[in-house]
Design a binder for these strands. Structure first.
Lengths: 262, 262
DNA sequence: GCAATTTTAACTATAATAGTAATCTCTTTC
DNA sequence: GAAAGAGATTACTATTATAGTTAAAATTGC
């Protein structure tokens, strides 16, 4: 076995990669699609899909052979999401701030290059299960994204920046890697990120990174969002610099309430 | 390899069984707990947990060694739940009925012996993500459970009944396997289940099984729930027998809207 | 009905895992 | 602060599960 990977199960990895293919836009797949996307041979693909089907995580349409997540998946997902219950506390705290100060607040975790929004001011609470939203390609053009990058170790951030696609959402979006590097540098030094009409015209935001308090690693960010009609960058910076950092600290403290049970 | 299991990946199974250990009551585990519960040796347990940690599905407290679901889990769960989007349609239809007829409606899927409630009249919408609730040990004492059992093939139902623990929730709960068998038989013949104060004093319900329309297998049930103060069993049966069966048919039709994409 | 494609099955060489035992790392206790 | 003990990690092979090839079914399109 390749050294250093003695304790890594490739089979488990492949199975999970299959499960992770499904989403709102791809609720159904065929075996050959899976094989193509994951670059697996048909036999292995068949084996892993069959395992997931036999375990009840996927179901296969016996006629069309299409596969999709099944009821047991739902059960596991509900369980897993309830297990990460600290997120509820975060939401409650954010709601409190939101009501009290009447500002829009976003909290997001980063997974690879995706920001998973736990709380979003335009949260459509009624949709499906009021699940969080997520967005890709926004690490460079949102306050949340820039704060998250600034919370990473310098090298890790540099690697991410090198690999990112710097999509220009507005004419203010940073599309130059050098400038983005400097911006993240600045953000890291002062402890908060600013975003001025870089994501959407008329929208400003200030954000600070969230840290896993135990492993002391950047895991996400929290932002306050404003309209250009009520605020300008200067006033936001004057008014909210401390508050965003305090909020980030409070929320970070909730991330790993990993007391010993019993 | 044991014959017949050529196309089943034990590694994937074990990894998923680890993920499936986490829930609201068990948000954190240690390696030895996992090993004990799943009857794996420490090395294998270490390997699978390490795989999940390296992939980002679990995170390990570097000090206490405790493990728990991580952000990537949340991402996958959200994706998977949104992939099963047909459930949204079900919820909308149920809400419509609920408003229109002013009756309490429950929709549930069965996973092993657990009923996963998609809609529950006491649904605490604000909790966490408004996730569904689930309950165990209620196949024998709820209309939902009895309807589900009646929707299964006779043999499968018989096996389940044999293995169930017939907990007496009230003095009306069926606790005798023979009587339960007969009750399910009756339910199967007439196409709906009744429950009269068998789960909670004062609560009645009528239910019908939900079928996966493609594989034509019983997968869950839908029920209308009433209070003894407003209704008795006779009047419910007179009034709702057809409606519950029609509702079950409509909802069943939504379960597998598996059109070919593109 | 006949290609073309997809899915499933049989079959081994090879790579991955299980399991044992040894080692390391904390805690606890005295 | 040493010793004991529990749990986690690593090293090491025998075993076995899986990858990949090939081929047979099954399905689809014509």
């Amino acid at each position: 076995m390749s050294k250093g990977k003695y304790y890594f199960s490739k089979s488990l990895e492949k199975g999970l990669r299959i499960l992770a293919l499904f989403n709102r836009n791809t609720p159904v797949l065929t075996q050959s699609e899976v094989a193509r996307v994951l670059e697996l041979n048909m036999t292995s693909t068949y084996r892993y899909i069959n395992t997931l089907v036999e375990m009840g995580y996927l179901e296969k349409n016996t006629k069309t052979k299409e596969i999709r997540p099944a009821a047991r998946c739902l059960l596991m997902c509900v369980n897993l999401m309830q297990a990460t219950d600290n997120l509820r506390m975060i939401k409650e705290e954010v709601d409190r701030l939101h009501r009290h100060y009447n500002i829009s607040i976003d909290v997001a975790f980063a997974v690879d290059d995706t920001l998973v929004r736990l709380y979003h001011r335009e949260a459509e609470e009624a949709l499906t299960y009021s699940l969080p939203e997520f967005s890709k390609n926004c690490l460079h053009n949102t306050a949340l994204g820039k704060a998250y990058l600034a919370g990473l170790p310098e090298e890790a951030a540099a690697v991410k920046i090198d690999q990112m696609e710097l999509v220009a959402k507005t004419d203010r979006t940073i599309v130059d890697r050098k400038i983005l590097q400097q911006e993240i540098e600045l953000t890291r030094k002062r402890g908060f990120a600013m975003q001025v009409e870089e994501y959407l015209p008329g929208v400003l935001a200030i954000a600070a990174p969230l840290y896993d308090p135990i492993n002391n690693m950047g895991v996400g960010a929290v932002s306050f969002d404003f309209s250009i009609l009520q605020h300008d960058a200067r006033s936001i910076e004057a008014q909210y610099t401390e508050m965003i950092q305090e909020t980030a600290q409070v929320l970070s403290g909730m991330l790993s309430p990993m007391q010993h049970r019993k």
